[in-house]
Simulated assay, not measured.
Amino acid sequence: MDRRAARRPTAPVGNLLREWRAARRLSQLDLAISAGISARHLSCVETGRAQPGRDTLARIADALEMPLRERNALLLAAGYAPGYPESPLGAPELAGMQRAIEFILAQQEPYPAFVINRHWGVLSANGGAERVNRFVLGGRSSAHRNIVRQFFDPADLRPALANWEEVAREIIHHLHDHVASTPTDRAARALLEEALGYPGVPAHWRVRDLSTAPSPLLTTVLRRDDIELRFFSTITTFAVPRDVTLAELHVECCFPVDDATATHCRRLASAVDGETAGVGETAGA
């Protein structure tokens, strides 16, 4: 196979640049000045009359604040090889980061913690997260490995969310913002449409709300019978990642808002430890 044919762009680079420039609400002149190139050259790139070099594309991507995955797509569209690797989380080159993530999850016990990708998919979770989910779901596991689906599906965690409308509105707000800021992420757009399609979702949520910013601190209230578990979350990301996988990961740690929540989480952990010890004693008898 001809290597040049194998590297043929999947989408014209000019189309991608126009799409991103529109999403950032920049004129050609604005983008050209930010990228340190002439407006005429940028115009020729967008119309296909000029072939941009890798350095030019890097400067344009910086000016547009493009994520690493989209920078790779831009390079491919121009006929170049991707500039950033995308390694599986279990790859040897990410072993150090994997250990750091496992340490964060373990340190968060007995409270929930999750590793989440850019589309809210849960890649891993600690025991605290699994125990809390099973408790509020009456002993069963969640049907989804995606936070959006868990919180919007009436057959999953949604009935256990005492403040569902508040939490769901924030999730929709974040999804709208992500879709608007990353115009080429079709999967995020599809996830937004899926969330909006669940029963009971207000119709006006289809329109992006630009009048309010996301809440700086959101409390998630989970309820089973007369027991409420209240958490707020912190997000850990990786500084200056050079790998697509790391750039798209974040670790969400849930902290108890009150003593009652903290006490119940410890009780859930103790109950599991007691069951494990009982199994071990029986097996050794």
Score class of each variant (00 low, 15 high):
E165Y: 11
E165S: 14
E165N: 11
E165D: 11
E165F: 11
A168K: 01
A168S: 09
I171N: 01
I171V: 15
I171E: 00
I172K: 02
H174E: 11
H176S: 05
H176G: 05
D177T: 11
V179A: 15
A180Y: 00
A180L: 04
A180M: 04
S181R: 15
T182V: 14
T184R: 09
T184C: 10
T184Y: 03
T184D: 07
D185N: 13
A187H: 12
L191V: 10
E193R: 14
E194F: 05
E194N: 07
A195V: 06
L196S: 02
P199V: 08
P199F: 10
G200P: 10
G200F: 09
G200M: 05
V201T: 04
A203F: 13
A203R: 14
H204N: 12
W205D: 00
R208W: 06
T212I: 15
A213G: 09
A213H: 12
A213D: 12
A213R: 15
P214G: 09
P214L: 09
P214F: 06
V221D: 03
V221Y: 00
L222F: 15
R224I: 04
R224G: 04
D226W: 06
D226Y: 03
I227F: 08
E228N: 05
R230C: 08
R230Y: 02
F231A: 00
F232R: 11
S233Y: 06
T234G: 08
I235S: 13
I235P: 06
T236C: 10
T237R: 13
A239R: 13
V240D: 14
R242M: 12
D243G: 10
V244S: 02
T245D: 01
L246Q: 00
C253M: 12
C253T: 11
C254E: 04
P256T: 06
P256E: 01
V257C: 07
D258W: 05
A260K: 13
A260E: 15
A262G: 12
